Simulated assay, not measured.
Amino acid sequence: MSENVARRGFLIGGLGGAALLAAGCTSNEPSAAPTSAAPAPTQAAGGNDEPGTKVTIGFSAPAADHGWIAAIAKNAEATAKQFSDVEFQPVEPTNDINQQISAVESLIAAKVNALVILPNDGQQLNQIALRATEAGIPVVNLDRIFPDKLAYRTWIGGDNYGMGVAAGHYIGTALKEKNVSNPVIVEIQGIATLPLTQDRSKGFADALKTYGFEVTAQQDAQFTVETGNEVATSLLQAHSKIDALWNHDDDQGVGVLAAISEAGRDEFIMVGGAGSANAMRAIKEDNTVLKATVTYSPTMASSAIKLARLIAQGKGMSDLVENQVPQSITLASETITKENVEQYLPLGFES
């Protein structure tokens, strides 16, 4: 996607194990006898983690000027280190489009076996991804998508629309349980002009509509702590009573929560976005208005490295019947609450 600051997604622990990537692909029930409709898998689940052909995976991402982006690079490197058959070759992270193009060109020249790219701008880096593919190097496109499907072998990323839907259902259900009518619902976006933000807002509005609710006020906060604080302060001053607030991004949510605390407001519930560790800790402690967050976790980078390794080694995903890694994987947006936060805390990123 064409944005300099972007977002998110939710993982999947190991790609060899789980209902992670596609619902219904695995089961805990004993396997039935193979039939012509469902041939027996040729490799036991988890077997893909065994050492295989040595491969070099190149990695390029934006500069770590944001908690989520920093976690992307950290997760990619940590996962690569888990495999003795992977040589991880990252290039210098940058927010400069031309520098990222040059960095990817260096990886193509080095003839890496696979590339994992989170582009600063999918549109502007589309041509260099195409060049890699034409050179026989499979590209795993992480999060911000290249517009040309010929530019990547597999895309993996989060569900922005699904984030909005998850947030909307949490708020709608909570307000219905309280018998609230005509609620004041406030939405703090990231960057309003970005497609990802528009997808999130549409999902939120669509879900709220099923409860007969709609957004009262909406303002963007640029994905920064400072602007989050300023926007929240303004919205709190404009509305003497609020019933619910959805903040799209947990990084900017640090500023949002600070503004709420400073104003001494606690009459509403708040839902965050992305799944940061500090948001999860606040949810666990249950001493602020933040009661839930919807995931768009940077652990997707870990999955991208695993996918690149499998593709470079000519393997498929052992939990799937198909012989090759899927062309596209959209991760689910999970809702984290006090009841399940312990399960997600290990996946949180520091804001």
Rank of each mutant, 00 (worst) to 15 (best):
A238W: 11
V215N: 10
T35D: 13
D65E: 14
V321R: 10
L115V: 09
Y344S: 00
A129I: 01
A64Y: 09
V180N: 07
I97M: 10
V256C: 11
R309S: 02
I97C: 07
Y170M: 02
S351L: 08
T293I: 05
S276T: 01
L347A: 00
G164F: 08
F59H: 13
R131L: 09
L20C: 05
Q343Y: 08
I69Y: 06
G228V: 14
T35K: 03
L345R: 02
N141W: 00
L331E: 08
P62H: 13
E50S: 14
D148E: 13
G253M: 02
G316C: 05
N113F: 10
G67Y: 04
N98D: 14
I329V: 15
A166V: 09
A259M: 10
K338I: 12
Q43D: 05
G255E: 02
G136D: 11
T173H: 07
A129P: 03
G348Y: 06
S276W: 00
G253L: 01
D159Q: 07
S84R: 03
L196Y: 10
Y152P: 12
G157T: 01
P30E: 06
S31Q: 12
A151Y: 09
S102Y: 07
L118R: 10
T56G: 10
L257T: 12
P346M: 00
F268G: 12
E50G: 09
P30Q: 08
A71R: 04
L118P: 01
A71F: 04
I336M: 01
V165E: 14
S201D: 06
L125K: 12
T216Q: 10
A61T: 15
I156S: 03
T293K: 08
I145M: 10
A274V: 12
I97Y: 04
Q343L: 07
K81C: 08
N247D: 13
A258D: 12
P119D: 14
E134D: 15
R153H: 08
Q222L: 15
I72F: 02
S303P: 01
S333Y: 00
L310W: 00
F213S: 07
A109P: 10
A308H: 01
G168N: 11
L115Q: 03
E105N: 14
V231N: 06
I72G: 02
D65V: 15
V225F: 12
A22S: 13
N182T: 13
G16S: 10
E214S: 15
V321H: 09
N287S: 14
A174H: 09
T337L: 10
A64E: 13
A33K: 13
Q127A: 15
K149M: 03
P183D: 06
K81E: 13
W155R: 03
R153Y: 08
F88H: 05
E285Y: 08
E187S: 09
P39T: 14
S276G: 03
P39Q: 14
T216V: 06
V112L: 02
E3M: 09
N229A: 15
G272I: 03
T224I: 07
P183S: 11
P147T: 07
I117W: 06
E350M: 07
D143M: 02
L235E: 05
N141C: 09
L15Y: 01
I269P: 11
I69W: 07
A301G: 04
G24V: 13
